[in-house]
Amino acid sequence: MDQEMTPAQSMEVIHRMIAEAKQSAQRANFYFLLWGVLCALSGAIDHVLLRQGVALHWLVWPGMGLIGAIGSSLHGAREGHRKGVMTMMDRVQMWLWSGFAITLVLLIILLVAKGLDPNPFVLVLTGMPTFITGMLMRFRPLMIGGLLFWVIGLTAAFVFPGYSSLIFSAGIVVGYIIPGLMLKRHEDGLRTT
């Protein structure tokens, strides 16, 4: 790699390396699928427990949050370690979702303290980082997932208020799991090309 370069060769090296760097952002599908499955299951379990009159039905949510946080942290650390690189996209995503997680926990505490059902609010709030991530990655299914979170959040509040946990699970399936599966296929394709 030490021979004299022509300007065209220099430009070719620059383009090739920048293209390589662009593909170095962490794969994101794992997080959408992990949180999607956990949230959808929790919503369904919460709904069943609530219908059966279990007083501590809400405990499923902090339990799910703990499992998701541990899983995400372990996976993030392992991926970062394996790739040996941190991109601007990785950092933006990390802080976007960290800020979202903190806001989410505070919002749930406030809403529960005020006696309000948190599910519609959580759906509407979840729409924001999902939509932004879709825009940043230029991945349309996630952008649509974010939009659906907003629509389903409003639906859960005004149309089916008694079924908000189930609506929440449905929202997670269309906002996280389906886009997550499509993202997995997209990222697997990028890795093999």
Partner: peptide, 16 residues
Amino acid sequence: HNQLRLAVVSLLVGVE
């Protein structure tokens, strides 16, 4: 203006 150094710097432009 050296292929390897340029490659390294170009990569680092794209990642933090």
